[in-house]
């Protein structure tokens, strides 16, 4: 109704600040990733003297980046599928059943989120060490599934609670088999939730650093651990820029898809009413 000039000015200003806030760091990362290895970019040059994709191809050919990418991008979908499958029964119980102590269980499932990542990682490694279990790939996979299960459980619980009992009853009343009931009454409502849960686990698995770093040390690499190696004692800025972009760009795109899915997972979207 009343238009406040204060809001317009302040929001315009903030949007400008935020653009700088986001564009400058990413712009710099992009520039750094394009610095040609033959000519360094150093003070007092304002811009890199020569730009090329040389660095990208060099990284691909001569570092363990391809392996790290393979590890990350094969761990993530498996962790996503594993977490969704394991979360389903619990989410069903949380979303559709009433039982004693439900609130307590719902809180307890969140424990991995408040436990410091490095504590989980180090003492999981300690357990593996005791058991003499040295297969790092499956160990990291298990770790990712468990640490990211809470997200899948939360999202799927909401989805299950949105399934309408009257539709379930109608399907059964019309003589549908359990499988048909699931297909007709559950699946359409659960679908966005399943995709959303899978995607969030996927994204967070790709980003996960502590467990991959501790359990995977010294030589099992994922994209974050390789990024860390270029940020740590062995600081190579252009290489770090390349890996940072490889890590962040696909995830941003996936996150935008996720946002869409979560919006369509709301009750208004499913029942068609406000």
């Amino acid at each position: 109704m009343r238009k406040s000039p204060f809001n317009t000015i302040l929001s315009g200003l903030l949007i400008a600040v935020m653009t700088v806030w986001l564009a400058v760091p990413f712009g710099m990362a992009l520039l750094w990733s394009l610095v040609d290895p033959s000519q360094a970019w150093s003070y007092p040059d304002i811009l890199p003297p020569k730009l090329s994709f040389e660095r990208w191809s060099l990284m691909w050919d001569s570092t363990s980046l391809p392996i790290a990418m393979f590890n990350s991008y094969s761990l993530a979908p498996m962790a996503g599928v594993g977490a969704v499958l394991l979360a389903m029964p619990t989410a069903y119980a949380f979303g559709r059943l009433e039982f004693k102590g439900k609130a307590v269980w719902q809180t307890l499932v969140l424990v991995p989120l408040i436990m410091p990542g490095f504590v989980t990682a180090i003492f999981f490694a300690s357990l593996l060490f005791s058991m003499g279990f040295f297969a790092r790939y499956p160990a990291i996979l298990v770790g990712h599934v468990v640490m990211l299960l809470p997200y899948a459980v939360r999202i799927l619980s909401v989805s299950f609670s949105l399934v309408r009992q009257d539709v379930v009853n109608a399907a059964r009343d019309l003589g549908a088999s359990p499988i048909s009931v699931f297909r007709v009454a559950y699946l359409p409502v659960l679908k966005p939730g399943i995709f959303a849960a899978f995607l969030i686990v996927f994204i967070l698995s790709i980003e996960e650093f502590a467990l991959a770093f501790v359990v995977g040390s010294p030589d099992f690499t994922t994209i974050p651990t390789i990024l860390y190696s270029y940020l740590g004692y062995n600081f190579i800025r252009p290489n770090a820029a390349v890996v940072a972009l490889i890590l962040v760009v696909p995830n941003v795109i996936l996150m935008l898809i996720l946002e869409r899915l979560l919006q369509s997972a709301n009750p208004a979207g499913i029942s068609g009413k406000g």
């Binding site: 499958l85 269980w105 499932v109 436990m115 003492f123 999981f124 300690s126």
Partner: peptide
């Protein structure tokens, strides 16, 4: 209910419990 919770909450609690116990014990 127990069977439904086992693969989700159960797994999380077993894993985190083991990790926590390990930290305190060590």
């Amino acid at each position: 209910i127990g069977l439904l919770l086992a693969p989700g909450v159960g797994l999380v609690l077993a894993f985190m419990g083991a990790v926590l116990y390990r930290a305190v014990a060590q």
